[in-house]
């Protein structure tokens, strides 16, 4: 599904050029659950953002389902994103002015899904993450774990082929964290490919494979299965 070859990514300021990712090669198969680990600043989030087409790569190739997407313009990226990729962030990133239902509904709004269908799918996914009873609440009225469950619901409502999770349990206590990890595992078992960035060895154990990074390079890949 994802084939990244010889990826280079630099961050430039007026005086300094920093190599964020150096010669990274990654291959993720459909249905895989991959965890990316490494110390802070090693480039794992940058990698995830490039995979999610939120950030550019400077050199190298990125094949998404066999299509070269490295040079995609913003319009194409946005299109590919909304139909194929769901995101889960450490800080949930729910829109404060929208209710739980409306937050989850948002990706469907942008893919022009009819209202009745939207309602059905949002309710279905809210049931799945067990937050249906909070559907009319605003994010500020929910606990961290509940907010992250809403974020996961939002990420999967469009049935994406790929979910990218950036430290999804980073802001949660262990019990809420476990809940979210189980949720991701279930989704993976249902066929969704997941790439997750994490600091947590415990969370990484839920993945099929762990990619370890240091100073912008992949230094080790281990299978947990």
């Amino acid at each position: 599904m994802i084939k990244i070859t010889n990826l280079q990514k630099y961050y430039r300021t007026e005086e300094v050029e920093t190599v964020a990712l150096n010669n990274v090669n990654i291959h993720v198969k459909e249905g895989e659950f991959v965890a990316v680990m490494g110390p802070s600043g090693c480039g794992k989030s940058t990698l995830l953002n490039i995979v999610g087409l939120l950030d550019d790569l400077d050199e190298g190739s990125y094949l998404f389902n066999g299509t070269e997407v490295a040079k995609f313009k913003e319009g194409n990226r946005s299109n590919l994103r909304k139909h194929n990729i769901g995101f889960v962030f450490q800080s949930f990133n729910l829109i404060d002015e929208l209710t739980v239902f409306e937050n989850v509904e948002l990706p469907l709004v942008y893919t022009n899904v009819p209202a009745a269908e939207r309602k059905r799918r949002v309710e279905e996914v809210l049931e799945k993450v067990q937050i249906m009873h909070r559907r009319n609440h605003f994010p500020q009225q929910l606990s961290g774990g509940q907010q992250q469950r809403v974020a996961v619901a939002r990420a999967v409502v469009n049935n994406p082929k790929l979910i990218l999770a950036d430290e999804p349990t980073g802001n949660l206590d262990s019990s809420n964290g476990n809940e979210v990890m189980h949720l991701l595992t279930e989704l993976n078992e249902a066929g969704t490919t997941i790439v997750m960035v994490t600091h947590s060895e415990h969370d990484a154990k839920f993945a099929d494979r762990v990619i370890r990074m240091l100073d912008g390079q992949v230094i080790m890949e281990t299978s947990t299965v």
């Binding site: 999610g52 939120l54 946005s78 994103r81 404060d96 002015e97 990706p107 942008y110 893919t111």
Partner: peptide, 16 residues
């Protein structure tokens, strides 16, 4: 800003 970012992530184009 966060709202704009999140809308973009879930698929909003600049035009929308």
């Amino acid at each position: 800003a966060k709202e704009v970012g999140m809308r973009k992530v879930v698929g909003a184009s600049r035009r929308t």
